[in-house]
Amino acid sequence: MATETHDAGQAAADMAHGAAQGGVGMPQLDFSTFPNQVFWLAVTLVVIYLVLSRVALPRIGGILAERTGTITNDLAAAEDLKAKAVEAEEAYNQALADARSEAQRIAAEARAEIQADLDDAIAKADAEIAAKTAESEKAIAEIRAGALESIQTVAKDTTAEIVGALGFQADDAAVAGAIADRMKG
């Protein structure tokens, strides 16, 4: 303390205070300030305690709980959405497969219908062709028959004429028989 009082830089108030400490070097052991410190410490602790227990801690606790809740909810929602996405994909695939099989079915039906129509048309055409053929054959046969008859008639006439020209009396029956014989040949 002696050096302290000798020190030129020391303020007068401090010197007075140093003297008031009664030679105690450590201000921590200056018991005259204890009631003051204890009083203000008590006030401070009570204020801090009230502020913390009434305002700060419930609020921060609430925020933390809310955040945990939000995160849990978000995770659950994400899980939900993921499940929905999988579901939607399945539904999409299902729809795609359905559409494909439907398309195949329709195509097959159309093909069958067309085939049936085609068959019908072919059958009809065949029948028509057959009818036409038969008709034509009949006509040809008629024509052929007509031609034979005409040939026979012409042959008979010609033969009669030739025979007449040769000076013979043509026997109709014999001429007819001869011609029929020749025609067979």
Binding site: T33, N36, F39, T44, V55, R59
Partner: peptide, 28 residues
């Protein structure tokens, strides 16, 4: 003044008050 009774506002009071303000500032 140089007397310190139990209620005198001292530098202890000042820094206690600042501590309270800092704590309130941070937590509240």
């Amino acid at each position: 003044g140089d007397t310190i009774s139990w209620y005198t506002p001292t530098n202890v009071t000042l820094w206690m008050a600042i501590s309270i303000l800092v704590i309130v500032g941070l937590l509240v």
